[in-house]
């Protein structure tokens, strides 16, 4: 997602990471109880995991996250008027880039004076599934996170 953001930033595409709650609280990254703790975790996301996009914090009660469906790693794309044009219940750079390419083309067609009307479409996209990397990520939070995930889906 970072590389995709950098690739499109000079085409007037903004990208942010919105910090929500700990999906897999563990010994190293327990559940959040304060904005100060949330800020520390977000700095670790930036410094240890290399998220280069601007990171913004949601309120401690997840007001924004909850209003948008509160999935653990979803992505939304908004136009300048605040209209969501894409939403995905999981984040995948290929899927997002595919959507951006389409919307940038729409902008070009509008500049060319094509008369366009919006319509809704549903589509099933596909992402890589790397269980090993996922469990390495869980382990960063702690053994508790690994054990709880394994138990929840056993």
């Amino acid at each position: 997602m970072n590389a995709m953001a950098e690739k499109y930033e000079d085409r007037n595409i903004g990208s942010i990471f919105l910090y929500t709650h700990e999906a897999h609280p563990g010994e190293n990254y327990p559940h959040l109880t304060s904005m100060a703790q949330k800020t520390r975790h977000a700095y670790d996301l930036q410094n240890l995991l290399g998220v280069s996009r601007p990171i913004l914090l949601d309120a401690l009660d997840g007001a924004c996250h909850r209003a948008y469906g509160s999935m653990p790693n979803m992505t939304w794309i908004f136009n300048r008027a605040g209209i969501p044009v894409y939403k995905s219940d999981w984040s995948d750079a290929n899927s997002v880039e595919n959507a951006l390419s389409y919307f940038l083309d729409v902008s070009e067609r509008r500049k060319a004076k094509e008369r366009l009307a919006p319509f809704r479409v549903e589509r099933l996209d596909y992402r890589n599934q790397d269980k090993e990397a996922f469990y390495i990520g869980l382990m960063r939070s702690g053994q508790k996170a690994v054990d709880e995930f394994s138990k929840a889906f056993s």
């Binding site: 997602m1 995709m4 953001a5 085409r11 007037n12 595409i13 903004g14 990208s15 942010i16 990471f17 919105l18 910090y19 929500t20 709650h21 700990e22 999906a23 897999h24 609280p25 563990g26 990254y29 975790h41 977000a42 670790d44 996301l45 995991l49 996009r53 996250h65 948008y68 999935m71 653990p72 790693n73 979803m74 992505t75 939304w76 794309i77 908004f78 136009n79 300048r80 008027a81 605040g82 044009v85 984040s91 997002v96 951006l100 919307f103 940038l104 902008s107 990520g137 869980l138 960063r140 939070s141 996170a145």
Partner: peptide
């Protein structure tokens, strides 16, 4: 969202 033509918002956390 008003600062760019389109804005990508990824929701998530460290864990």
């Amino acid at each position: 969202w008003s600062a760019s033509l389109y804005t990508v918002v990824e929701f998530g956390s460290f864990t």
